[in-house]
Structure formats: C-alpha cells, structure tokens
C-alpha cells in the first residue's frame, strides 16, 4: 500500500525568511506541529488563511507541500522540500560555531 499523500502549507517568514508551516494556532517552525490537510477543501481553506497572513505581511511565498507520514515523522515527498525542512545537506561550513539561533 503506498502511503497516503497529505499536504501542509508552507511559507517563509517575512522578517527573517525562515521556513514555517501553517498550524492551527498560526505558523510553526516544526512540521510535526503543522495542520495536515487530507482533502482539497481543507487545503483550499488553509491556503486562504495563509494568503491572508501573506497579505497581512507575516509571511511570503505561500504554497502547499506534499508530505507522507513515516513512523512518527512528517516527511515532505520532494527533495527540495526535505532540504527546506532540514537545511543544506552539504555539511562543513554550514554547521560552524553558530552564534545565532535560527
């Protein structure tokens, strides 16, 4: 059985560009806390809420992302979105003594 494909709505935060996901109470950095959308109506409603937040200048670049459940994790289907979620895969200078929390 292929895993059912769900969707989450994502964006980048306006002030710092960080990747966020739409949750019940607003936007979250943790995909595990995001609202999982299983049908087109829920997705349309979530996108409408997200676009309203974009119009209110909280986030930019709103869109829906396909995800699947793997064990307890929510994992994006596309590599691009997995990299957006977990950061560059390239190692080294991307993980130095970071002085700033992201």
């Amino acid at each position: 059985m292929p895993k059912p494909v769900l969707r989450v709505v994502t964006a980048n935060r306006l002030a710092d560009g960080r990747v966020v996901f739409l949750a019940g109470a607003g936007w979250t950095r943790a995909i595990g806390a995001a609202s999982l959308l299983s049908d087109p109506q829920a997705e349309a409603a979530a996108l409408a809420r997200a676009e309203a937040d974009a119009a209110a200048d909280r986030v930019v670049d709103v869109y829906a992302v396909e995800v699947v459940r793997e064990a307890a994790e929510i994992v994006p289907v596309r590599l691009r979105e997995r990299i957006r979620l977990t950061g560059p895969t390239a190692g080294n200078s991307v993980a130095p003594s970071a002085p700033r929390a992201s």
């Binding site: 980048n12 560009g17 960080r18 990747v19 930019v60 957006r84 950061g87 560059p88």
Partner: peptide, 14 residues
C-alpha cells in the same frame, strides 16, 4: 526594491 539591493529569498532564508 530588495533585489536592487542584492536581497534574494532562497530556500531557507534571505
């Protein structure tokens, strides 16, 4: 305006 000042939006950040 931001592009004219070298600011792009990338995957993880500006």
């Amino acid at each position: 305006l931001r592009l004219q000042n070298g600011v792009y939006l990338q995957l993880h950040s500006y």
